[in-house]
Measured scan of single mutants.
Amino acid sequence: EPLWIRPDAPSRCTWQLGRPASESPHHHTAPAKSPKILPDILKKIGDTPMVRINKIGKKFGLKCELLAKCEFFNAGGSVKDRISLRMIEDAERDGTLKPGDTIIEPTSGNTGIGLALAAAVRGYRCIIVMPEKMSSEKVDVLRALGAEIVRTPTNARFDSPESHVGVAWRLKNEIPNSHILDQYRNASNPLAHYDTTADEILQQCDGKLDMLVASVGTGGTITGIARKLKEKCPGCRIIGVDPEGSILAEPEELNQTEQTTYEVEGIGYDFIPTVLDRTVVDKWFKSNDEEAFTFARMLIAQEGLLCGGSAGSTVAVAVKAAQELQEGQRCVVILPDSVRNYMTKFLSDRWMLQKGFLKEEDLTEKKPWWWHLRVQELGLSAPLTVLPTITCGHTIEILREKGFDQAPVVDEAGVILGMVTLGNMLSSLLAGKVQPSDQVGKVIYKQFKQIRLTDTLGRLSHILEMDHFALVVHEQIQYHSTGKSSQRQMVFGVVTAIDLLNFVAAQERDQK
């Protein structure tokens, strides 16, 4: 057995438009009618409502009807409940999964919650491996369901041993009777949507819809739904939504950006999952974080739909894509998950301010006199920076000697690579993860907040409520011999709460 199987392995699926269902090699399930009293909570997966979006479509000038398939009504709160249950049931049916076995899954959280929910009911041990950027709410729900959680670096490539995929496979090879159901490759993922989600949409719309818009992560949702719609409703256009920084969209030119990270969760990847059939997507749109969270908040405030950030991405694209539809036509959007997962993220004004998705003037509360002053007023001194090749031991000596707790790590040209902190280095040394002679590049981390000289002290204040420091950066445009230009970030300084307090105190003292 291989040590790991690539999540982007070539698909062996034989589905073709027009091929009889009787030739399918898979076990198919028909939607079942729910009894009045459910035998367990797993029976509350599927049969989610279709809700008309009344205000947002009109606000953006849509002539067509805009409908939302509300997947956050599933038992675990997301569309991923469907595939989690289906993968477990299919693994039980073919004898792969037996009582007492362990389920391991690399996930952005929602599939993990679905699997942990099913594992709690069915009696399996469950280990979820997820990147650090995923919300604390997801972690809390997983723990409450009895799952064990392993976190991995957000910026690790999918084929790196440190990625959530790599760590999951390492655990599988170490733990007896453990299984990775593997949402990236498992046919049960798109089949769950082909058999149930798509049929529900067709039934709820009486077979009449002209466009379907869905955000894409593993691709199982859009693949399964689109294949069924292509068979039953061939005139329906399928629109895929991919965040900026991901590479799922086609044509490839759409993916060209210097951005590699994004805040919206559960969609987009740096590889093409095996289950994603991009041939059934008629057109791709890219979405960005700001519009995703703005539209998610709009869905909550104006439509009462308590959905997550990827739902915002989907609707932001839908109001663009559906401009081509006329009166009497219908566009369906998939709202994948609930706001429950993001209470401390985009639902929080403070978080939105820190990330730059909300401006101070958007909030009406009274601010102190210094709130709208610029960061450049602080008069920061030149920063202490270190090269990635310097040793951890030497870096600790320098920081202690100069009285700093942290320093930016830059390359020879001064471009920011990340940050090192005294606390992080000492804990890594004590844990045996690094040696004093190791290069400081081994303990770089990139989960820090950046701020510009033109940003306000109010925004800085919000950042420092949650973080010990902020890195002050400025952009530099560099022209190359080819005539092309590129933008790079340079370090201007490091600012802490002490710097802000000293500035405010000094100004008030001078005024007296």
Rank of each mutant, 00 (worst) to 15 (best):
G240S: 03
D242G: 02
D242Y: 01
G245D: 02
S246P: 01
S246D: 03
L248Q: 00
E250K: 09
E253G: 10
T257W: 11
T260P: 05
T260G: 11
T261C: 09
E263C: 07
E263K: 13
E265M: 00
G266R: 01
G268C: 01
Y269S: 05
P273A: 04
T274M: 01
T274I: 05
V275T: 04
V275I: 06
L276D: 01
L276C: 06
R278F: 02
R278T: 05
F285R: 07
K286F: 00
N288L: 12
N288F: 09
E290Y: 13
E290W: 11
E291G: 06
E291M: 12
A292F: 02
A292K: 03
F293E: 01
T294P: 06
F295P: 11
A296C: 05
A296H: 01
M298N: 10
I300S: 04
Q302M: 15
E303V: 02
E303T: 11
C307V: 04
C307Y: 06
G309E: 05
G309L: 00
G309A: 04
S310N: 06
S310V: 00
S310M: 01
A311Q: 06
S313A: 13
T314W: 05
T314M: 06
T314P: 10
V317P: 09
A318M: 02
A321L: 12
E324P: 13
Q326V: 13
Q326N: 13
Q326G: 13
E327K: 13
G328T: 08
Q329C: 15
L335S: 05
P336N: 01
V339W: 04
R340G: 07
N341H: 02
N341L: 01
Y342K: 01
K345R: 06
F346W: 02
F346D: 05
L347T: 02
D349T: 05
D349I: 05
R350P: 04
R350W: 10
M352D: 04
G356W: 04
G356S: 07
G356A: 05
L358E: 09
E361T: 14
D362W: 11
L363Q: 08
T364D: 06
K367V: 15
P368G: 10
P368N: 10
W369E: 07
W369D: 07
W369F: 09
W371A: 09
H372I: 12
L373T: 06
R374C: 14
Q376D: 09
Q376V: 06
L378T: 02
L380W: 10
L380M: 14
L380G: 11
A382F: 14
P383T: 11
L384T: 09
V386C: 15
V386K: 06
V386I: 15
L387Q: 13
P388V: 13
P388A: 13
P388M: 03
P388R: 13
T389I: 14
T391R: 06
H394P: 14
H394E: 11
T395A: 15
I396L: 14
I396T: 13
L399N: 05
R400E: 09
E401H: 14
K402S: 13
G403I: 08
Q406L: 06
P408E: 02
P408I: 02
D411G: 09
G414A: 04
N424R: 12
N424W: 12
N424M: 11
S428Y: 13
S428C: 14
L430T: 15
K433A: 13
K433L: 14
V434C: 14
Q435W: 10
D438C: 09
Q439F: 15
V440Q: 01
V440R: 02
K442G: 06
I444W: 15
Y445V: 12
Q447N: 15
F448E: 07
K449E: 15
Q450A: 07
I451M: 13
T454K: 11
G458S: 15
R459V: 07
H462Y: 15
H462A: 14
I463G: 13
L464E: 06
H468E: 07
A470G: 08
L471H: 08
V472G: 12
V472I: 03
V473L: 08
V473C: 11
V473S: 13
H474K: 04
I477Q: 05
I477K: 04
Y479A: 15
Y479L: 15
H480C: 13
T482E: 04
G483P: 12
K484F: 15
S486R: 15
S486Q: 13
Q487E: 14
V491F: 14
V491Y: 04
F492T: 11
F492V: 15
T496S: 15
A497D: 12
A497P: 02
I498M: 14
I498R: 03
L500W: 08
L501A: 05
N502M: 11
F503C: 03
F503I: 03
V504K: 13
R509S: 12
R509W: 11
Q511R: 13
K512L: 13
K512I: 05
K512C: 15
